[in-house]
C-alpha cells in the first residue's frame, strides 16, 4: 500500500518538472490550471510507526490581465495631401489566458504640428500569414477592425499587428510631425492593478488586473517629408544674321533649370516641355547638364517625341535636394510658314 502511494506521488513530481520546463518562456502558469497539495506525516506511537495523509488543498490559477502595445520603430514619411498612410503597432497579450482586446485610435494628440485624419476604415487587424498577404505589414488581406465585433483574441503570450490608416492634410509643411496613438485594453476589464473581476477569467476563474493595468497606449508619428520642385525656363534667340531677332529661320535656345527643395524625394520625376507652335525642334540639341541625349527613346533618359504632340522629355529619376541642379537645354527653329 505504501509503495502504491509513493508511485502516485512521484508521477505528480515528474509532471511538475515537465511543466516548469515548458513555462520557461511563458508569462506564467496558464489560467485555469489546478494546483493540488497533499502533505504526509510519519510518526511513532509506542513502538508502532505509521503515516497519515492530509486533505488535498486545491488552488486554481486565476487569469491575469496584462497587455503591451509597441509603437512603430520608425516615423512614417508622408507628403502633404497623401491618403492611406500607415502606422503599424504590435499588441502583445502579457496575461496567462486567452483575452480579447478593445482597440481605440486617437489622432488628436497634443504637442504635434498637425492631426492626421482617420481613413475609413482606420484600424486594420493584420491577417498574419494569410495567403497572398505579408505578415505584420499592411496589405489588402488585412481585416478592418469593428469594436466589439472582431476584437482580436490573443492566447497567452501571443501578439498581433494593428495598422492605423490615416490621411495627411494638404496644409502641412515640410518637417511637420503628426501623431496618432493606439490604445489596447483587455475586454474582461482594466484599471487599478489587483482589481478582481470575479468569475470572468478563463474557465470561470477570477480575472485580476495586472501590473500593466490591462491597458496600454503607444504613439506613432508621421513626418512630412515635403519637396518642392521648381523649373526655371529662359531663352536666347539667335538669328541667322548673327543677331538676336526672332525671324523665321532663327533658333531659340531654351535652358531649363530644375531644382528640388525640401527634405523629401520627388520620385521618378519627369520633365516634359512642348515644342512651341510655329517652331520645330532642332534635332540633336537636347542635353542634360551639358551631356548630349539622343532624340530617340532608348537607353538614355532623354527623347524627342512627336505624339501626342511634339515635345522633349527627360526622365530625372528620384529628385532630392541633394541631387543638385539639373540643367536641360534644347533648341527650336522658327518656322518659315507659320
Amino acid at each position: 500500500m505504501k509503495s502504491f502511494r509513493f508511485s502516485a506521488l512521484s508521477g505528480a513530481v515528474a509532471l511538475a518538472l515537465a511543466f516548469s520546463a515548458h513555462n520557461a518562456h511563458a508569462v506564467g502558469v496558464a489560467a485555469g490550471t489546478p494546483i493540488d497539495n497533499t502533505a504526509t506525516v510519519d510518526f511513532t506511537v509506542g513502538t508502532v510507526t505509521s503515516t497519515a495523509t492530509s486533505n488535498t488543498v486545491q488552488v486554481v490559477v486565476a487569469e491575469i490581465l496584462d497587455v503591451d502595445v509597441t509603437p512603430p520603430a520608425t516615423r512614417t514619411p508622408v507628403a502633404p495631401g497623401t491618403t492611406g498612410q500607415v502606422l503599424s503597432f504590435r499588441v502583445d497579450n502579457l496575461g496567462n489566458g486567452p483575452e480579447a482586446f478593445l482597440l481605440v485610435a486617437n489622432n488628436a494628440v497634443t504637442g504635434d504640428a498637425f492631426d492626421p485624419v482617420a481613413a475609413s476604415p482606420a484600424i486594420y487587424i493584420d491577417s498574419g500569414s494569410a495567403p497572398g498577404g505579408t505578415p505584420d505589414v499592411f496589405d489588402a488581406t488585412d481585416v478592418p477592425y469593428v469594436p466589439g465585433g472582431n476584437d482580436p483574441l490573443l492566447i497567452a503570450d501571443a501578439h498581433v499587428y494593428i495598422h492605423l490608416v490615416n490621411n495627411i492634410p494638404t496644409t502641412v509643411a515640410d518637417g511637420n510631425l503628426g501623431r496618432s496613438t493606439l490604445t489596447a485594453s483587455a475586454r474582461t476589464g482594466s484599471g487599478t492593478q489587483g482589481t478582481v473581476i470575479a468569475g470572468q477569467g478563463t474557465a470561470g476563474t477570477d480575472a485580476v488586473v495586472g501590473v500593466t493595468h490591462a491597458l496600454d497606449l503607444a504613439q506613432g508619428e508621421y513626418e512630412v517629408l515635403g519637396v518642392t520642385v521648381t523649373a526655371t525656363k529662359s531663352q536666347a534667340v539667335v538669328d541667322q544674321f548673327g543677331g538676336s531677332h526672332p525671324l523665321p529661320g532663327a533658333n531659340i535656345n531654351y535652358t531649363i533649370v530644375v531644382n528640388a527643395v525640401g527634405t523629401g524625394t520627388a520620385a521618378t520625376a519627369v520633365f516634359a516641355d512642348n515644342i512651341p507652335a510655329g517652331t520645330s525642334y532642332v534635332p540633336g540639341t537636347l542635353t542634360l547638364n551639358g551631356g548630349a541625349l539622343t532624340d530617340t527613346a532608348d537607353g538614355d533618359v532623354g527623347a524627342y517625341e512627336t505624339t501626342p504632340q511634339p515635345r522633349v522629355r527627360v526622365q530625372l529619376g528620384n529628385l532630392l535636394q541633394s541631387s543638385g541642379t539639373k540643367t536641360i537645354q534644347f533648341s527650336v527653329v522658327i518656322n518659315n510658314t507659320p
Partner: peptide, 8 residues
C-alpha cells in the same frame, strides 16, 4: 511532516 512543493 513531508510536503512536496506544489506543481507550478
Amino acid at each position: 511532516i513531508n510536503n512536496a512543493v506544489p506543481a507550478h
